[in-house]
Nucleic acid binder design. Structure first.
Length: 509
RNA sequence: CGAGGCGUAGCGCAGCCCGGUAGCGCACCUGCUUUGGGAGCAGGGGGUCAGCGGUUCAAAUCCGCUCGCCUCGACCA
């Protein structure tokens, strides 16, 4: 067996391998596996501040590769980036009743503007003489400060639609933080738009939901279910909340992105009106939408396996790692030069490539390390390959390996990466299908949720009361009312009352 | 915020029950040999035992409080 320095050695070899193939996975084990991967792969670590994480260079590179295509997509759909303040006057937050109620439990508040050293205790403390007249809330989201600003920007129908996005950090004080999935401070983008009509705003909410769905499926290789949230699960202050829900390898659901139709709630709270073509004053219609660094958590928990991360090529910081191997000293330079020549060819094709010729580690160590970091393809070159002008190619997802001519490998690289991307998606799609259950008996639903996890599609009578009882009894919530499902008359799984459509239940993060 | 577990070298841990010189593996430094799946040998450096307080001649060890981390619940992108 390997003599590994890390405790995950035994862990990956024995425990996890049997879980990642299929659900169910005991939560205890998958948590540990997740924490180990995040830390050992160099994505992030805990900071001295509870609930706040340090994103490390490899994790940040991943985030940049998520940000870039999203940012381009926002701009391509006519949105402009801007930046609004981190601090929100308490009175702003209070202006929309539902909104403030929804976030009240998790707000960090700035109350002082100075610290001083206490003359008695020598302790450094907030200066009691320096209390802010109005406390500032560290933004949990920016609707209020943005709508305060929109009031100044919007005069007439000619100013509409107003399509704004900001990349920012937000703070929601979390009781139970988990790296990437739920931290007290997280990074995201929040889109905020204003429109002349309800139809147009609703259309925008749908448009951005679809943009998210396409991104998550095409870039992150994670299939999603698009749907509406129930009133209980709705964003505080929204008329309608849309979501994309994903199913992770442990059978739990994760909300990967949301889009809200805000109606005129914020326009009324902040008195944002515009003159129509008929010279009449009307309140504007609004949307907001966001995805966060949680997407990184989704990637880890969708594609990872017993060896570590598996990253979709489109967002992988490195797509190919080239590892030179030699026996004799005189081979070293030649093989290394060969490896770098291959890398240059790949870089010319815009393939994110790195040669790992670090003399500190032997090849076996590097194989394990780059597998842990999820690099899609590994090219290994040694004296034999140099002589025969070949390269050994190893696929991270299947561990399949082939040796082929180097020119052929360079020719094929783009196709290989595309196929890798598709294969990852397909595997995730199959898992989603395999663990989506159409259930008509409450007993059966409880059994499935308890034993296997996954999605349950069942009929619901549409009441918050039933929703709450099912949540209390099974731990599962209604993730969404699917948008692309056929209507189907049935009986509520809990009360037997009539239902027009199945809704998606799952235990969630 | 409730329940349970854990804090000893950078990481993983032993020592604690039964108080008496701070240990092991990996990592790190030096040298030589190695390199196609986590290299070997030799030598070396590194600790306010989470913090604060108490008991004691003496505390990593016993007692109290605080903080942090992990798992499970209630709350959430």
């Amino acid at each position: 067996m390997w003599l590994l320095p890390f405790s995950y050695s035994w862990y990956f070899c024995t425990t996890i391998s049997k879980y990642t193939k299929d659900m169910p996975i005991p939560m205890h084990d998958i948590s540990q596996w997740y924490n180990e991967i995040v830390e050992k792969a160099g994505l992030a670590e805990h900071s001295p501040v509870r609930g706040a994480m340090t994103i490390k260079p490899y994790g940040w590179a991943l985030w940049e590769n998520i940000q870039r295509p999203l940012d381009e997509a926002f701009k391509a759909t006519g949105h402009q980036n801007a930046y609004f303040p981190l601090f929100i006057p308490l009175s702003f937050l209070a202006k929309e009743a539902q909104h403030v109620e929804g976030f009240a439990q998790e707000c960090a508040v700035v109350t002082h503007y100075r610290i001083h050293t206490d003359s008695q205790s020598r302790a450094v403390k907030p200066d009691p003489e320096a209390i802010l007249e109005e406390p500032l809330v560290v933004r949990p989201t920016s609707e209020t400060i943005i709508w305060h600003t929109f009031k100044k920007w919007i005069r007439s129908y000619r100013d509409l639609p107003l399509l704004i996005n900001q990349w920012a950090n937000v703070v929601r004080w979390e009781k139970r933080p988990r790296l990437f999935l739920r931290t007290s401070e997280f990074l995201w983008q929040e889109g905020h738009t204003a429109h002349a009509t309800a139809e147009e705003a609703l259309q925008e909410a749908h448009r951005m939901l679809n943009l998210y769905a396409d991104f998550v499926e095409n870039y992150l290789a994670i299939p999603v279910i698009k749907g509406r949230k129930t009133p209980t699960e709705r964003f505080a202050g929204a008329v309608e909340t849309f979501t994309i829900e994903t199913l992770l390898i442990d059978g739990k659901a994760l909300q990967a992105g949301t889009s809200h139709f805000l109606g005129q709630n914020f326009a009324k709270a902040f008195d944002v009106r515009f003159l129509t073509q008929n010279n009449e004053l009307e309140y504007v219609w609004a949307t907001s939408w966001g995805v966060s660094t949680r997407l990184i958590g989704a990637v880890i928990l969708s594609h990872g396996d017993e060896r570590g991360l598996i990253l979709p090529p489109r967002i992988a910081p490195l797509q190919v790692v080239i590892i030179p191997v030699w026996r004799k000293e005189e081979e070293k330079d030649k093989v290394s030069a060969y490896a770098h020549a291959l890398a240059d060819h790949l870089k010319k094709k815009n393939i994110r490539t790195r040669v790992d010729d670090d003399p500190q580690h032997r090849p076996g160590w590097k194989f394990n390390e780059w597998e842990l970091k999820g690099v899609p393809l590994r090219w290994v070159v040694g004296p034999k390959d140099l002589e025969e002008q070949t390269v050994e190619v190893v696929w991270r997802n299947t561990n399949e390996r082939t040796t082929c001519n180097y020119q052929q490998a360079i020719e094929s690289i783009s196709t290989w990466l595309e196929n890798f991307q598709k294969a990852l998606y397909q595997r995730a799609q199959e898992r989603l299908n395999r663990h989506t259950h159409y259930i008509d008996s409450y007993v059966e639903m409880r059994r499935i949720l308890e034993e296997k996890g996954g999605f349950v599609l069942a009929h619901w009578d549409g009441t918050a009361d039933t929703e709450l009882k099912i949540k209390e009894e099974t731990g599962a919530t209604i993730r969404c009312i699917p948008l692309e499902a056929e209507s189907e008359v049935g009986a509520c799984i809990y009360t037997g009352r009539p239902s027009q459509q199945r809704v998606l239940f799952a235990k969630a993060y």
